[in-house]
C-alpha cells in the first residue's frame, strides 16, 4: 500500500476537505504547480489560482478549483488555506459558464469604474472553475 498523508483544505467560510488517506497531491503554487507525496519536506508557499488534484489510497481521484491562499506542508500533513475552494462536483456548470461570459463582457465593454487587474483576475477565476468542472479523469 502506498504511503499516505493528510490533506486539509480550509477556507474562511468552511472546511472543504479533511482526508488522511491521500497518496499524492498536485497544487498550484505561485511559482508553478508542485506535486507532493507522503513525507514531503516542510514547505510553505503561496497559492495561485488553479486546480488542485489529489489521489486517494483507494484509487479515487478528485480535483478542486482554488483561488489564492497559502500552503503549509509539515509533519506529513498538507494544510491549504485558500481564499475559496470548490470541489469539482460542487461547481455549478451553467453558473460557471455564466460568470465566464460576464467576465469577458466586462473586459470587452470596460465600464467607467473598470479595474483591469480585477477583471482579469475574475476571468481567470471563472475559467479555472470551468476547466475544473469539465475535467474528466
Amino acid at each position: 500500500m502506498a504511503k499516505t498523508f493528510t490533506l486539509e483544505v480550509i477556507t474562511p467560510d468552511r472546511k472543504v476537505l479533511s482526508d488522511s488517506e491521500i497518496t499524492s497531491v498536485v497544487l498550484p503554487g505561485v511559482e508553478g504547480y508542485l506535486g507532493a507525496l507522503a513525507h514531503h519536506e516542510p514547505l510553505m508557499t503561496s497559492l495561485a489560482i488553479g486546480e488542485l488534484d489529489y489521489h486517494r489510497t483507494d484509487g479515487q481521484v478528485n480535483a478542486m478549483a482554488v483561488t489564492g491562499g497559502f500552503v503549509e506542508i509539515f509533519d506529513n500533513k498538507i494544510t491549504v488555506l485558500a481564499d475559496t475552494a470548490e470541489l469539482r462536483e460542487e461547481i455549478d456548470l451553467p453558473r460557471a459558464e455564466d460568470s465566464v461570459r460576464r467576465a469577458e463582457e466586462r473586459l470587452a465593454s470596460r465600464p467607467d469604474d473598470f479595474d483591469l487587474e480585477r477583471a482579469q483576475i475574475s476571468l481567470k477565476r471563472a475559467l479555472n472553475r470551468l476547466s475544473v468542472a469539465r475535467k474528466q479523469f
Partner: peptide, 28 residues
C-alpha cells in the same frame, strides 16, 4: 521549527502576502 521549512518564494515575501490576509481574516 526555525529554518526547517523551505519557502517559496522567500519567507519575507510570503509574510508580505500573508499579513494582509491576516488582517482580512480579523475583519471577517
Amino acid at each position: 521549527v526555525k529554518s526547517e521549512f523551505v519557502f517559496e518564494p522567500d519567507a519575507a515575501a510570503l509574510l508580505g502576502t500573508l499579513l494582509p490576509k491576516y488582517v482580512d481574516t480579523g475583519v471577517y
